[in-house]
Nucleic acid binder design. Structure first.
Length: 584
DNA sequence: GAGGTTCAACCTTTT
DNA sequence: GTTGAACCTC
């Protein structure tokens, strides 16, 4: 039996997690403890034990994570029929194969969901608060079992109207995929021997499962296969979309017999960061992680009078850390040439994306390249998505459905097209057609959108739906680019940078006023544990948000870790200066 | 149908 | 303070 590189250099607990196959396994894996290593090692081990690739199913939450895992396995010579997929795409393919009375499901985006619900509600003369009901419906769809009959009448009504309309057009929203898969398995699964035949299921980021996804996991695993769930309950930051860390605890009993392993050797963060992060978490039973870094790490805190000053300081600090090529740093002689950082080693994190703009502006001023990470701009996504519907409409397919996805005003514009003009458009070159259609909808494109469109047209010509082509081309962080990364705290999960700035660390932002306080703590926990070397925490004493000017206080979370924060030299002097300034 | 006004939201995000 | 949807007028 040949040894695989993925099975080498594991610590004892990692190895145990990878090789226990006589029970189910729950792995609690804190930041930097080798979560992905365990997952890939386990797959390598199973294969080495003679398990067939198609008997193994690995589930992740994002396509990106799935691709990364596939890449790692591929690099170790284990590609082939390993199934690495997300819950949603698993359910999509499952349904495609097994629900013959409905053709290939079409999935609607959240914006489309909203439009459909609003339209359907209005056409039935409903005049209540649609937004609140929409949120409620979204919440219900994550739950299991869904008890719609216990809901208020208006929720029940809109639920029905919405779903009737979806099935009329053979549409599913993302949650429907999970729900439909559960329904199918519950009603027919046990009668159909061939429905599921996995011997091993591995689930990544288990702290992020919703009740529905948990149920689906139980159904998939009900045929006697072994399940490994791995995750970190303390990094559960997606409560707003249905994640519930409670399932990490439930797993042990629901998937008995189960071996529980807690990985506590941390290879990313220095000890001081781990300690601070654990204090911020304020969870008694959280595991104490032991750092294997050779140094303690460093946390500094600095507060500013305005967000612009905060951002300006961050920009100067980055300039300094990266070797200071800007005019200002050369002038002041702070460029030291020692231990210089690459710009890709540095991340600026914030609670809300809006705040990222302030940093972008200051970085631009300083001539420091940057890139935004996380989700692509949903507005442009929507724009491009609409274009696709329009193109399909012009091609003459599924007219009702595609028109339905447009706003009333846009729809009117379209319906005003004479059949002559439509014929003309049909004969146009794709790029020309896009131009015409865009003019019709009054769309204007940024350069990046224009680039995206060009690529997408090429894909489209090769027979792919434009919307899919556009999705595939969405820009993500490029770690090879010499640029600072700008990210929301949420978007930073799973990433690692030597230097991390956690900005806007103020009461009201971190923690977010209306947020769940414990989840806000976990969010800061995630932020702190992104850094492999040092963390700068900053805040501003004033904040301009939603047209309101607010006086702010540093985050109360910081009080708890005061002793772990290095005091900047010359603190007192600076203070004096500030006071003098005030006199004028 | 274009163009103006008012009103209410306004976080985090994946599929 | 910005955006989008709904509603108005010409």
């Amino acid at each position: 039996m040949q040894s695989n590189p993925l099975l080498e250099n594991l610590n004892d607990l990692q190895e145990l997690a990878a090789k226990v196959t006589d029970t189910n396994v729950l792995v609690e894996a804190g930041p930097g403890t080798g979560k992905t290593r365990v997952l890939t090692a386990r797959m390598a081990w199973l294969i080495a034990q003679g398990c067939k690739p198609h008997d193994i199913l690995a589930i992740t939450f994002t396509n990106k994570a799935a691709n990364e895992m596939a890449e790692r396995l591929g690099a170790a010579g284990l590609s082939g029929q390993l199934q690495i997929t997300t819950y949603h795409s698993w359910a999509f393919n499952f349904l495609k194969d097994r629900v013959p009375d409905r053709a290939c499901p079409v999935v609607v985006t959240e914006n489309e969901q909203k439009r459909i619900l609003t339209e359907v509600a209005r056409s039935e003369g409903f005049d209540g608060k649609i937004k609140a009901i929409f949120d409620r419906i979204q919440f219900l769809k994550q739950s299991y079992p869904i008890k719609i009959e216990e809901e208020p009448e208006d929720v029940q009504l809109l639920w029905k109207l919405y779903h009737d309309r979806l099935s009329a057009y053979n549409l599913y929203d993302y949650d429907d995929l999970i729900i439909a898969a559960i329904d199918h398995l519950e009603s027919q699964g046990n009668k159909d021997e061939n429905v599921l035949s996995y011997y091993h299921v591995l689930i990544d980021e288990f702290q992020d499962v919703s009740p529905a996804q948990y149920k689906l996991t139980q159904l998939i695993a009900s045929h006697g296969c072994r399940v490994m769930a791995i995750g970190d309950p303390n990094q559960s930051i997606y409560g707003f979309r249905g994640s519930d860390p409670v399932f990490m605890r439930r797993f042990e009993t629901d998937f008995s017999p189960c071996t529980r392993i807690s990985l506590t050797s941390a290879y990313r963060c220095p000890q001081r960061l781990l300690d601070a992060a654990r204090i911020v978490l304020a969870v008694e039973e959280a595991p104490v992680l032991k750092s294997h870094k050779g140094h303690a790490g460093n946390i500094t805190f600095k507060k500013f009078q305005t967000p612009e000053k905060e951002a300006g300081w961050v920009a100067r600090k980055i300039d300094q850390l990266s070797g200071g090529i800007s005019f200002e740093s050369l002038n002041q002689g702070i460029a030291s040439g020692q231990g210089l950082r690459s710009l890709s080693d540095i991340a600026i994190l914030f609670r809300i994306n809006r705040i990222g703009q302030i940093f972008a502006k200051e970085l631009e001023k300083a001539g420091i390249p940057y890139q935004f990470g996380g989700a692509a701009n949903p507005l442009s996504d929507e724009k491009l998505n609409k274009l696709w519907h329009l193109l399909e409409f012009i091609e003459g397919r599924d007219i009702d459905y595609h028109l339905f996805m447009l706003r009333p005003e846009e729809r009117k514009r379209l319906l005003s097209l004479t059949s002559n003009l439509k014929k003309e458009m049909k004969a146009m070159e794709p790029s020309n057609l896009l131009k015409t259609v865009s003019r019709l909808l009054k769309f204007q494109y940024s350069t990046s959108e224009a680039r995206l469109l060009k690529k997408a047209i090429k894909w489209h010509q090769r027979g792919r739906p434009l919307s899919l082509a556009l999705k595939a081309e969405q820009d993500v962080l490029d770690f090879h680019v010499e640029a600072v990364s700008l990210l929301s705290l949420h978007a930073s999960k799973g990433l690692e940078f030597p230097v991390v700035f956690i900005t806007g660390c103020e009461q009201g932002l971190i923690p977010w006023e209306k947020g769940d306080i414990q989840e806000e703590r976990r969010l800061l926990y995630v932020g702190l544990t992104r850094a492999s070397e040092q963390v700068f925490i900053t805040c501003s004493m004033r904040r301009h948000l939603y047209g309101e000017k607010i006086e702010t206080q540093p985050s109360p979370f910081l009080e708890d870790i005061d002793e772990l924060i290095s005091k900047e030299k010359g603190h007192r002097k600076r203070r004096k200066k500030a006071r003098q300034k005030k006199l004028f």
